Simulated scan of single mutants.
Amino acid sequence: MDAYSNIVKKVLNQGQIKENRTGVNTIAIAGAMFEHDMDQGFPLLTTKYVPFALVASELEFFIKGITDKNWLQDRNNHIWDEWCSPAKVAYGHDDETRKKMMKERELGPIYGFQWRHFGGGYQAWDKAPVPSGVDQLKHLVATLKTNPDDRRMIVSAWNPMDIGQMALPPCHYGFQVTVINGRLNLLWNQRSVDTALGLPFNIASYGLLLTLLALESGFKPGTLVGFLGDTHIYENHVEGVTQQLERKPFTLPGIETTAFSSIFDWQYKDTVLTDYRHHPAIRFEIAV
């Protein structure tokens, strides 16, 4: 997938050393753009293994508006393990704090809550918000079906009122859907981009969301576009991404969804990849 490889090359060639809250320096550039035509295949990297089940189960987690870390863990998804709501455990790097953060299940009003209850009064993972807030995703789907030429089909996860309660402020903070010539396009915005570890997941997640919204509305999948802000590679990831660039990509996989009735009833196991050929996995340490 050249669009991804070109971003990696740009960061490596033009990036500057930058400090950040994690204590691990990055090589960073001030913005990039990702673009992929879904007719070319599903945008999952082939130069390393990317576990699609983790991408899909996290997306279901967001769509359902869940904020309980245990829901993911019950599905063998551990990508949120290191984080929790700062209202429960104040963020810190020391071992004792990290252990407490790992044990706490409360993530606070993160992505899915904002998608489904924006402006709602967040209480806890197991309590309904009061008031319930705005169901942005439901509104987007309804507009897509009744007025697909609308240019206001936007879902935002960036809510300054709730950031202090979130396990992590949204990295990908909003997305927009447009329909042009019978094709559904999805454009997402991202403030902070972990190019080696996070971006492949973000690309696949929004590619899957685009696919599901196309199924929901009857339009053909179109173009996936990412507007990327602080785009960086952690210094301890350079060796891994350099190895990726040396590998010859395989043809992109296909994607199939069975028994689809609604995006709101969809479960991650309903969608599978077809013909996913890939190089071996590359381990990248996560910066918390």
Results as ranks from 00 to 15, higher is better:
residue 132 S to V: 15
residue 164 G to S: 03
residue 128 A to S: 15
residue 93 H to M: 12
residue 107 L to Y: 04
residue 156 S to E: 01
residue 170 P to R: 01
residue 145 K to A: 13
residue 127 K to W: 02
residue 97 T to Y: 01
residue 44 L to R: 01
residue 119 G to F: 05
residue 116 R to W: 01
residue 65 G to W: 00
residue 93 H to T: 06
residue 103 K to G: 12
residue 69 K to E: 03
residue 128 A to D: 07
residue 131 P to I: 12
residue 147 N to M: 12
residue 46 T to P: 01
residue 156 S to T: 15
residue 127 K to D: 10
residue 164 G to T: 14
residue 88 K to D: 08
residue 122 Y to A: 11
residue 82 E to W: 08
residue 102 M to S: 09
residue 115 W to N: 07
residue 62 F to Q: 05
residue 103 K to T: 13
residue 88 K to R: 09
residue 149 D to N: 13
residue 132 S to D: 08
residue 136 Q to W: 01
residue 119 G to D: 00
residue 166 M to P: 07
residue 41 G to R: 01
residue 45 L to R: 00
residue 153 M to Q: 09
residue 87 A to M: 15
residue 88 K to W: 02
residue 68 D to S: 10
residue 166 M to Y: 01
residue 152 R to C: 09
residue 57 S to C: 11
residue 102 M to G: 15
residue 159 N to D: 06
residue 68 D to Q: 10
residue 69 K to G: 14
residue 61 F to E: 00
residue 161 M to V: 11
residue 64 K to S: 13
residue 85 S to P: 02
residue 79 I to A: 10
residue 53 A to Y: 08
residue 73 Q to N: 15
residue 40 Q to V: 09
residue 152 R to V: 07
residue 161 M to W: 07
residue 80 W to E: 02
residue 102 M to R: 14
residue 167 A to H: 00
residue 149 D to Q: 14
residue 163 I to T: 12
residue 67 T to R: 01
residue 163 I to V: 11
residue 82 E to G: 14
residue 132 S to N: 10
residue 156 S to H: 02
residue 136 Q to H: 04
residue 52 F to E: 00
residue 97 T to M: 03
residue 83 W to G: 14
residue 131 P to H: 08
residue 84 C to M: 05
residue 137 L to K: 05
residue 167 A to C: 05
residue 101 M to N: 11
residue 146 T to Q: 15
residue 130 V to N: 12
residue 105 R to Y: 11
residue 88 K to N: 14
residue 44 L to E: 00
residue 110 I to V: 12
residue 111 Y to I: 07
residue 140 L to R: 05
residue 97 T to Q: 04
residue 156 S to P: 05
residue 72 L to T: 11
residue 78 H to C: 08
residue 99 K to M: 07
residue 136 Q to A: 15
residue 89 V to M: 02
residue 124 A to I: 02
residue 155 V to P: 01
residue 75 R to F: 06
